[in-house]
Design a protein around this nucleic acid. Structure first.
Lengths: 134, 134
DNA sequence: CGTAGTCGATTACGGATGTAAACGGTGAGG
DNA sequence: CCTCACCGTTTACATCCGTAATCGACTACG
């Protein structure tokens, strides 16, 4: 299935976000996007981009002398994978306890509650969500 | 405030789980608990325990020549912190999108849905949930 | 045609992590 | 008393991550 097993680090993730929001981009453009908030130099961004290419999360496309970088890994896949990892590792693979914790630590706003309620409605009417946790 | 800023790594977390489920324990007992699944040696467990002591996540209590280890960091705090970190980093601090993703990737079982629904009820009747998403 | 700038690639390096062996003290059994 | 087993501590070392400087190739300007 060619499912990439390479993990994306936190710093690399910042670069991915830039590419997800707009691509293809040159290294310099990526830097413009992220060096502001993270306080990195162009050199750092280049390193991260190379590592991401090696990890098959980003691909390059030659444009004259330089490269244009685009994401290969889909944002949804990444988010899904990371979320799942957390739920599996900390909550035995079940989402309900995670939810309980977020609620306890006041990480749920009224807006979240409303949205989640709506989501549950949709799920229920659609019916058929994975039966067992796994 | 005394909020410990020390991060707990994944391997260290496995040791914490052992101590959360039963404590105090000797190093050997912790190993009995975790070395099975993780395929570690006692030496590895000792290293992890020391690091956790340094990080103030575990405390020791002398029992003759050897130590008994107990958790200092509360499980709830750890889970809360990690969950929050994920939500902040990947979902802009809001829990609703995380749930949307878990739902999409079929990580929500029927049981989860029922439990979450019940939880929402409780929250709503209690009212007063943190207004802003932090 | 030579020189300066720009690119990606290579190399660097300190700290964290995973994994473990070696070391030194000490209590128990002979 | 001496030795052995066991304990926590120290040391080890490869990999990953964050962060970056340097290098070699090539282009574009003068």
């Amino acid at each position: 299935m060619a499912s990439e097993g390479e993990r994306i680090s936190e710093a690399e993730h910042a670069v991915m976000e830039a590419l997800w929001s707009r691509s293809p981009l040159t290294a310099a453009e990526v830097c413009e996007e992220v060096c502001a908030s993270r306080d990195w130099t162009l050199a750092t961004v280049k390193t991260l981009l190379s590592r991401l290419v090696v990890k098959n999360a980003v691909k390059t496309e030659a444009d004259g002398k330089r490269f244009l970088y685009s994401p290969v890994l889909k944002r949804g896949n990444y988010l899904g994978g990371e979320s799942r990892r957390l739920v599996d590792r900390l909550f035995g693979g079940r989402a309900a306890p995670l939810f309980a914790h977020l609620a306890e630590t006041e990480a749920l706003s009224d807006r979240d509650i409303a949205e989640i309620e709506a989501l549950l409605e949709t799920l229920k009417s659609q019916g058929q969500v994975g039966g067992e946790g796994r």
